[in-house]
């Protein structure tokens, strides 16, 4: 299993990285907050830590720390548009249920 990017997501990340002008890749993770247990982290990465796993997809480095990987393995990161809003979406096979707003989830 790996972390993958959809074509659209890869394209957007590439653009965002280019205009930011620095960084080694994209960091995906989880943290334990929110109304339903855990929440996703989506950040630019400037460094790669020792316990990180690095995936290469569409020529981009996707970085996940060891603990988060337990919850994220098999996730596909997508970029979609819903009405006027647009942004990234985690298609995570590990998730059992999410809170109403979908910002946090449970395994």
């Amino acid at each position: 299993m790996a972390i993958t990017l959809t074509d659209v997501a890869a394209e957007r990340i590439r653009n965002f990285m280019a205009s930011r002008g620095k960084g080694v890749g994209l960091r995906l993770g989880i943290k334990t907050t929110g109304c339903s247990g855990m929440a996703y982290v989506l950040e630019f990465a400037d460094d790669i830590e020792d316990d990180d796993t690095v995936y290469e997809d569409h020529g981009l480095k996707v970085i996940v720390d060891a603990k988060s990987l337990l919850y994220l393995n098999g996730t596909e990161l997508d970029y979609t548009r819903e009405g006027l809003n647009e942004g990234f979406k985690f298609n995570n096979p590990n998730v059992k249920d999410t809170c109403g707003c979908g910002e946090s989830f449970n395994i």
């Binding site: 960091r27 943290k31 996703y40 982290v41 989506l42 950040e43 942004g87 809170c99």
Partner: peptide, 17 residues
């Protein structure tokens, strides 16, 4: 499912914040 944006390192916000 809420749509997310990429944050600066360490600047990720908690949900609903």
């Amino acid at each position: 499912m809420a749509l997310l944006q990429i944050s600066e390192p360490g600047q990720s916000t908690a949900p609903h914040q």
